[in-house]
Amino acid sequence: MNWFTKTFSSTIGRKIVMSITGLFLCSFLVVHLLGNLTLFRNDGGEAFNLYSHFMAHNGIIRTMEIVLLLGFLFHIYDAIVLNRRNSSARPINYAENHPEQNTGTWASRNMGLLGTVILVFLIIHLWNFFVPARFGGLDPVVIEDVEYENLYVRVVQSFQVWWYVLIYVLGMIALAYHLIHGFQSAFQSLGLTHKKYTPFIQIFGFAFSVLVCLGFAIIPIYFFFSQQ
């Protein structure tokens, strides 16, 4: 192994990869949420369908899609490697252990569990929206004499199902807890702590986690109740 692979396979190196990919994925959440806001325009899905068409065909977006996929893969791969290392670091568990008495948050002790829930959610989400939008399988819709794929109808139909809405809400709750710990923890792992800025990062991270996940969760709830 040379110095580069050694660095990124060390415990600290892997945490650095976790932090950078995690913060990158946070930036993706912002873009995704902003795009989703087009769903709330009362135009029968025109703006949303144009937006999704742009996302599926623009060259820069398609390139970033690969970078995003790599971000997910590195984040998940390092999480698995670190989790395995961490559990083998304590082969015999305590008969009596009370971590809740000395650690701040439940989320900080259960990032792997939360991450797994998010991954399951992500697979369901991609299967229902991303795969048909990207590889075909959606109904056509004509906007100003041009034919587009009608992803909007898929959104409307999906969120008529109550358990589907429930999956989304649970997925976003898991994501919120994951981010509440993860956002500020990423800065600590990268060594970016300072008396002046760390309190701001912690407050911002909390607000970011709650608001972004709330923003996503409102969409299925909105469509479920507006169609009743």
Binding site: R14, R90, N102, S108, R109, S189
Partner: peptide
């Protein structure tokens, strides 16, 4: 064979002499 850091803060809370978590950030830096 020690594990990696999850930033739970349990170490600093249990440290008898109160070593701060800030040191871990300094080390990573």
């Amino acid at each position: 064979g020690f594990g990696a850091c999850s930033n739970t803060g349990a170490c600093a809370a249990e440290c008898p002499v109160g070593i701060s978590l800030e040191n871990i950030a300094i080390m990573n830096r």
